[in-house]
Amino acid sequence: MRALVAAGLVLVVVACSSPEPGGTAPSKAPAPTGLKVEEVAGGFQHAWDIGFLPGGAMLVTERPGTLKLVEGGRVTPVDIDLGDVQARGEGGLMGLVIHPDNQRFTVCHNTSNDVRLVTFRLDGTRATKVKDLLTGMPSNSSGRHSGCRPTLAPDGTMFVATGDIAQARNPQDRTSLGGKVLRIDPETGEGAKDNPFASSGNANERRVYSYGHRNVQGVVFRPDTDQIFSSEHGPSVDDEVNLVRKGANYGWDPSQGGTQSRYDESVPMTDLERFPDAVPAVWSSGSPTEAICQAAFWNGKLAITALKGTKLLLFTLDADGKVQNVSIPDELNDKYGRLRAARTGPDGALYVTSSNGSDDKLLKLTGNA
């Protein structure tokens, strides 16, 4: 692994990474050593997310609408009815989360009408539908900005990272489920009872935890703290890592206060002029963007995959969640193409998937970050 020492990379991480207006940019990290990458399995198509089962088995979603069981390096298709999955552009079968009973799991996928969360029960290599947990999340016919990443919180609620489907009004409209971080009951799909807008008469608004997002690709909880981080795609500039606060606005508004029906991507990712109380990112890519994707905590650092950037970024944070430095492992830098999933396994390893479209890999990363 190496720190960001090449001149161009220093510009990406140092000159283009402002935690907040007037803040200082993260420094270069020392170069850790001794990382090991193991190819656990291959042959996937746009491997999107990973869930861990007892005994070392894993489930892996594939964007075209298939689910694979990985056990002992062997990949077996799961018999599951996902015939309503619409795989278009950035949409299809996306996020996955395993429930605490290790039998049920919830996936997120596009249909012809919406993006939805569906819960299944796994029995061997067969999955049976339990229920539609949440329907009606907006979907673009092209699949653009579909999100969608569910993750269980330490308190047992389910957080869901969603995209704004490139519709201008969605991010600031709290009655829309697009461009949000949602917090729901994993049994009912309703908003958690202590959510910031729990008293709203609108069921969608009751599900909202934070808003003003563009296309959130990951949400993760920092161990032994109450900190929640999201990773988010920017337009032509400014991918963001955000420290997610209850009820907060993150300032993305391509409708310009409702004055534009078109999706105006020239606005700032965090528009502090229009929304002075919006929360600035703790890290921003500047230009060019990396198309950062899923986030996981591993060896005390925040690990985030990059699609366009074809790398893994490791963020060292202080106790308040501010980024101190960023480094990139050589072992995953432009070696496996686009990287999408990132989940920390029960064994303490970081599991990552490539997402190039054919013969994608499930990777296991061990060592000191």
Rank of each mutant, 00 (worst) to 15 (best):
L93W: 04
L9S: 12
L9F: 13
Y263N: 07
M137G: 13
Y263A: 04
G83S: 14
Q172E: 13
G147F: 05
L314W: 02
D132G: 07
G251A: 11
D318S: 12
L35Q: 12
S199Y: 07
A3T: 10
S17C: 13
V181G: 09
P223A: 13
S230E: 02
P138S: 07
D155C: 09
H99E: 15
T289Y: 03
C148I: 05
A203R: 10
T366D: 09
D239L: 09
V181E: 11
L59W: 06
T344R: 13
R207D: 02
D155K: 02
S142Q: 12
S284F: 02
V244H: 10
W252K: 07
P346R: 12
H99D: 15
T305Y: 05
S261W: 11
V75T: 13
N325K: 08
Q256L: 14
S355T: 10
G147L: 06
P186M: 04
E331Q: 13
D271C: 08
D239G: 12
R74A: 15
M158N: 05
Y211F: 15
A168R: 01
G367M: 11
T310G: 02
L67G: 03
E190K: 15
R74C: 10
P276Q: 10
R183A: 11
E290F: 15
R338P: 02
S231R: 01
G218I: 00
F275W: 08
N356W: 07
D253C: 07
Q260W: 08
F159M: 14
I165M: 14
V219P: 09
R174Y: 09
G124A: 11
G124H: 06
S210G: 06
R207W: 01
T157K: 10
Q172G: 06
R63Y: 11
T316Q: 11
A6Y: 10
I184M: 13
W283H: 13
K246H: 08
R340S: 14
A296T: 00
A15M: 07
G65C: 10
P154D: 13
R214D: 09
V216L: 09
T175Q: 12
E290R: 06
H99C: 09
E38A: 12
T119M: 09
D318V: 00
P138L: 14
A161N: 04
N113F: 08
L82E: 08
A278V: 05
N110S: 15
Y211E: 02
V219R: 06
P19W: 09
V78C: 11
G55H: 10
W48A: 12
G136N: 08
S18P: 01
D194V: 00
E20Q: 12
M94N: 11
S176P: 09
Y336P: 00
G83M: 03
N368F: 02
R149K: 14
V279S: 03
A47P: 05
E232D: 08
R222D: 04
P77G: 07
G95D: 04
L11G: 15
V75F: 03
A342K: 01
V37K: 11
L307F: 04
D277K: 08
G234C: 06
A168W: 08
E240I: 04
E190A: 13
A291P: 00
K180W: 06
Q86C: 08
S112L: 13
G72W: 13
T125K: 14
V326Y: 02
V267R: 09
A296N: 05
V10A: 15
M58Q: 12
D330I: 01
M269F: 01
A31K: 02
D123F: 07
Y209H: 11
M58C: 01
G43A: 08
H233Y: 03
T175F: 08
K180Q: 05
